[in-house]
């Protein structure tokens, strides 16, 4: 029946998603309370970044050239929260991407599942869709943490719309990791290999973005285009809103990679 796999995936995953949401929310609150709320700490950090940290190191880790922006609540959120939340949630995305098909294939459950009246494409699409819904829930946990944090730090420069746009961008970039992992799992079947490849994808993607940023060269700029993280510039989104180009690219990648995973899963033998 339509939607049963979607519903079951939500039912099975909500508790884990809740824990992740609480964790991300606490991290957001921690970021705002410990760093954003303490003027002395911020001033010290600004001094370190402006005078002691080599420029390329700062660029590698996405520290904006404008230290004043960095020291604003928005800049702080962008660098400390969004950059690291995207990496943390990428770990969630890899683990969850494996649950689309690989976990059930490796355990043999797929034999029971695919003997039911469920189309193969439906299993992949409904599980991915449900996990993206769970991801929205997790990111909402982060939003709650941020909103609570705003009660304790100056937040006049924060526009809620921009914040929601940045969170939407975060959902998209993590969704890319999720579907790429799902595709790799469909491709190689073996869970551990798929996890390794997906982890490699995240690491290389992160490096391409940070090294490309540090290199400040034409080649670096070209290479950065191949990184999913490049297309999620939270600082830019928080200041200027969503960049249609990046959003379109990330959305297209999610759709095309999901389609690829479906096609592969439709055509091949299941199980070991």
């Amino acid at each position: 029946m339509n939607g049963v796999v979607f519903g079951e995936t939500l039912r099975r995953g909500w508790r884990t998603a809740l824990y992740w949401g609480i964790g991300i929310g606490i991290y957001a609150l921690y970021v705002l309370l410990i760093f954003g709320g303490d003027d002395t700490t911020r001033a010290q950090m600004a001094d370190v970044m402006a005078t002691k940290l080599p420029g390329f190191i700062g660029q590698m880790f996405g520290i904006p050239d404008d230290i004043n922006f960095m020291m604003s609540t928005l800049g702080f959120l962008s660098f400390v929260y969004f950059t690291y939340a995207s990496i943390m949630l990428s770990i969630w995305a890899v683990l969850t991407g494996l649950s689309v098909t690989a976990n059930d294939e490796e355990s043999g459950v797929i034999n029971m599942l695919m003997a039911l009246p469920i189309a193969r494409w439906r299993l992949v699409v409904e599980r991915i869709a449900a996990n993206i819904v769970l991801l929205v829930g997790i990111v909402t946990g982060g939003l709650v943490g941020i909103l609570i944090g705003f009660q304790f730090v100056p937040s006049e420069d924060v526009v809620l719309g921009s914040l929601l746009a940045a969170l939407f961008g975060l959902v998209l970039v993590v969704s890319v990791v999720l579907v790429v992992t799902a595709l790799l799992a469909v491709l190689v079947k073996r869970r551990s290999l798929a996890a390794g490849l997906a982890g490699g994808f995240v690491a290389i993607s992160f490096l391409l973005n940070t090294l490309g940023n540090a290199a400040q060269s034409a080649i670096g700029d070209v290479l950065r285009n191949f990184s999913v993280f490049y297309h999620f510039d939270s600082a830019d989104i928080l200041q200027n809103g969503l960049a249609l180009g990046s959003i379109s690219i990330l959305t297209a990648v999610v759709i095309v990679v999901t389609w690829g995973a479906v096609q592969l899963f439709q055509r091949r033998d299941l199980g070991g």
Binding site: S107, V109, M112, P117, A119
Partner: peptide, 15 residues
């Protein structure tokens, strides 16, 4: 999909 609605299946390895 239509056929599986009419079939009861038990695999050799009950995972």
């Amino acid at each position: 999909v239509a056929l599986h609605a009419r079939i009861g299946f038990m695999p050799g390895d009950m995972s």
